[in-house]
Design a binder for these strands. Structure first.
Lengths: 336, 336
DNA sequence: TTGTAAGCGTTATCAG
DNA sequence: CTGATAACGCTTACAA
């Protein structure tokens, strides 16, 4: 049987409330008693039972992390960052993979709430009528990742989609490309997809390039689909000069589609990815990509959440973090 | 305030014990009362408070998962598999990243034990004197992944390292290679490393190839180190004909070292990886690799653990799962 | 500053 | 089969 607060109290000759007070520094306790308690705690190797504590506090030192799939490169990195920071704030994280399924998202929301987690970090591909409702009437603090949930009263950490897309596309234009394809990730209802589209169009417009609908590929983060679609383009000999894919995985899939059909990147087509996940450095050619400060975003999300849990920061926040274009080897200057 | 067992009891006109019995089907209850309780549960939307339950049961429906780093491809996939299965057995998983640090491993063991998790799945690069002690006197069921912990009384799921290494190396020999390098992952104390070495030597011996010490590269799963070392070899023009690297990431690092220096794979050197993680299919050339049934291993580990938690399966088990050689494009038949 | 005692929401023991 | 009631280990008014 593990040692409890009672054992400590008895051995230190004080009441359990006093012990509770010193280990939580919740109320003043005289120095000598404090010391005595600490000594006994040490001696007995006492660790407070977090379950008992949670029961009375009605809140666990746990943060739920709902993500599409940890086995995806960026997600793994993000979860890693969150976990890292969580531990320093004495939180554990419980992980939930939704595989992009809204039903799962809802199920996990309820499950985590029942578990009485302190808060939830939510990563979703798209926010729609169904999961938005859960966001609206969640009783726990939530932080949304890479999507804007402020309309639903949910604090969010994200990058500026319009701007980052604009910059990626502008870069492609600057290095000489004219026929540029955008692989966007959500459907047309999605705010972030619309922003991507806006950024894309703005870059085109500024350089007097005509927008062509066929150069928009909707992908839903499905790398296989991107692979197939780009392959079709190759077969039809209708490849664009350059592609901006809104995830590294999709960018790599696009490259693979070309390479597997005898083309070369960046010689035959320049490609930019998104996120700067580990795979983008691992792959050859190394991927030019719009970098997310993943680790920082994880830290920020976690910090926002813990603050919200502790009751500071009542109002919903939107933190826009800075992206950066990382030029590597999948893009190439061409002279036309 | 959430609805509790008391509310249900009152509304159903029964005692809380009865409610408890019906929701847990722990003791017989007459059919009509049972129905009444179910109805009220439904009506009030009652969910048992898992924290309270844990307090009295002295055990949480939580499984601790201690891994080196979720952001590594294989680990992410494994965690995904574990999580998947855990949910179907009504367990949550809390994730702990050790970054390969033994101190962290110990800390997490204690932390999880304090949390009263039901059990722990432990993935470690190496098992040494320090963490072995924790394994020996853990009071919670543990399942060790890809390492043999049976000497320490810990059940394990693993593949046969000797055999898999033997087969990989034999394959390289069969397709015409003679000068084969082994990138092994642990230090010489490690049982699994020794097995790798044994398998390597056996394959060599059977084909009358002399063992050369310089063809063993110790890497500790450090892909960067592999990159640097292989690069050195390229510079010295002392590259082997083929390499078996005991992780996909290290195999890819080796390829990168060559490609970045103008060599081609598999033309200049054949390479086999280990795990068949997602990156091995994503990379070009697609990696020939010794596949682990990652998902199955995760399921098995989880199942072993839940059984141990429930008190079945008192004895320690060792489950050896079947690996498979997956030939893709990083190896090539040569005629000498 | 310290102690007493009342919960927190369950499960489990023990009578009936 | 059903109901009181005592834990489980802790926090926190309320008293002293």
């Amino acid at each position: 049987m593990a040692v409890t607060i009672k054992d400590v109290a008895k051995k230190a000759n004080v009441s359990i409330s006093t012990v509770s007070r010193v280990i939580n520094s919740s109320k003043p306790v005289s120095d000598d008693i404090k010391q005595r308690v600490y000594d006994v705690v040490e001696e007995l190797g006492y660790t407070p039972n977090p379950v008992a504590r949670s029961l009375v506090m009605k809140k666990q030192q746990i943060i739920g992390v709902i993500v599409p799939d940890v086995s995806m490169s960026v997600i793994g990195e993000l979860v890693s960052a969150i976990e890292d920071n969580a531990k320093t704030y004495k939180y554990d994280i419980v992980l939930c993979n939704t595989y992009g399924d809204v039903e799962n998202e809802l199920r996990y929301f309820d499950l985590l709430k029942a578990k009485q987690v302190g808060g939830i970090i939510f990563v979703t591909d798209e926010i729609n009528d169904i999961n938005a409702k859960r966001l609206l009437d969640a009783e726990v603090p939530i932080v949304l990742f890479d999507r804007d949930g402020t309309d639903y009263g949910v604090s969010s950490v994200l990058v500026d989609q319009e701007k980052s897309t604009y910059e990626a596309v502008k870069y492609l234009i600057d290095i000489g490309h004219k026929d540029i394809m955008l692989v966007r990730s959500g459907d047309e209802q999605q705010k972030f997809t619309i922003s991507q589209l806006d950024g894309y169009k703005r870059a085109l417009k500024e350089h007097k390039i005509r927008f062509k609908k066929k150069r928009i590929l909707e992908s839903n983060f499905d790398a296989d689909k991107v692979y197939r679609e780009v392959k079709k383009l190759v077969k039809k000999d209708d490849l664009p000069d350059a592609i901006f894919a809104t995830s590294d995985a999709m960018a790599i899939a696009a490259i693979n589609a070309m390479v597997d059909n005898g083309l070369k990147v960046p010689d035959d087509c320049s490609i930019i990815g998104l996120f700067d996940s580990k795979i983008s450095k691992f792959y050859r050619p190394q991927l030019t990509t719009v970098g997310y400060p993943i680790y920082d975003m994880g830290s920020i999300a976690l910090r926002m959440l813990t603050k919200a849990i502790d009751g500071h920061n009542k109002k919903v926040q939107k933190v826009v973090v800075q992206h950066s274009l990382i030029v590597r080897d999948s893009t190439k200057l061409i002279n036309s």
